[in-house]
Design a protein around this nucleic acid. Sequence first.
DNA 1: CTACAACTTGAAGCGCAGGTTAAGTCAAGG
DNA 2: CCTTGACTTAACCTGCGCTTCAAGTTGTAG
Lengths: 157, 157
Amino acid sequence: MITVIEQMRQFPHLSIGDVAARVGLRTSAIRFYERRGLLPTPERINGRRRYNTDVVGKIHLIRLAQQAGLTIEEIRVLLHGFPADTSAAIRWNTLANRKLDEVNALLERIAAMKALLEHALECQCATLDDCASGLDSADGELTIQQQCAGSRTGRPA
Amino acid sequence: MITVIEQMRQFPHLSIGDVAARVGLRTSAIRFYERRGLLPTPERINGRRRYNTDVVGKIHLIRLAQQAGLTIEEIRVLLHGFPADTSAAIRWNTLANRKLDEVNALLERIAAMKALLEHALECQCATLDDCASGLDSADGELTIQQQCAGSRTGRPA
DNA sequence: CTACAACTTGAAGCGCAGGTTAAGTCAAGG
DNA sequence: CCTTGACTTAACCTGCGCTTCAAGTTGTAG
């Protein structure tokens, strides 16, 4: 029995539909990954792709990388953009460090949005025109001035 | 003199190009805001838009709202989607609370990405296949298992 | 044999947001 | 006269990750 199971594991018996079902993707997505160089072109039988089970792990790895924010192109680099003997550790380090910079920048932007929104909750202006007046200029980057915050309830005059 | 200055402030003497220059946008953006209902259709002289200076504050308000993450449509609601006598405070509260939920969700997603990336930095796998194996299933949401983390340097067999 | 599902290809399309551009016209000012 | 700058509408752009389409081929169950 063990040999049979081993055979199953190695023999490319999975259709693209089978693989899609196992990983919860559409077949079109799998072909797309292949076109973009994320997945190797599998063996074909009568023109049809036949996969062995290890492709399932590969696809899960792709999805994991996606969840980490890597783009398709970045994942391609991760998988095939290094000399073949490059360790996984080095590959991850390279890509993850790059991406962490982006993610941190994103976090800052979102935090800034959040700060603006929380500030907006403090607004006591009677009308939006009150908010708008005094919002002039600010050289490219707009800042919320003291107006709109807390104590004001209308415009001065 | 004072009356003259006041006249200048109220009289619609700014062309769309002037306004664009003052707020640092292209004229197309201003027309676009008008089409989308963010800005009122201004008075026309010889078919041309003439603005008075208060439009500058309005546009800055729009840009501020954008920086806070509101979409054009949401800004339209903020500006004109309430009964006319609704206070600015109430308008902001409504929109900002909605948006804060989204922003917090976004923050969580980004934090999750960051966690994945930081975990990836710990990877000691020799090959990506080592990372991939054992990554199977996980019911829709992929989690990083203990493998890839710290102690492993290759696959068991 | 006959359905019918599943597979093949490349190119094109979608969805979203926020503008921008093209192309043709017109009025004012130097 | 000629250059600016403005006018309009509709179409286009950018980015990313798939999805869909058309038109056929292959495998399989009944």
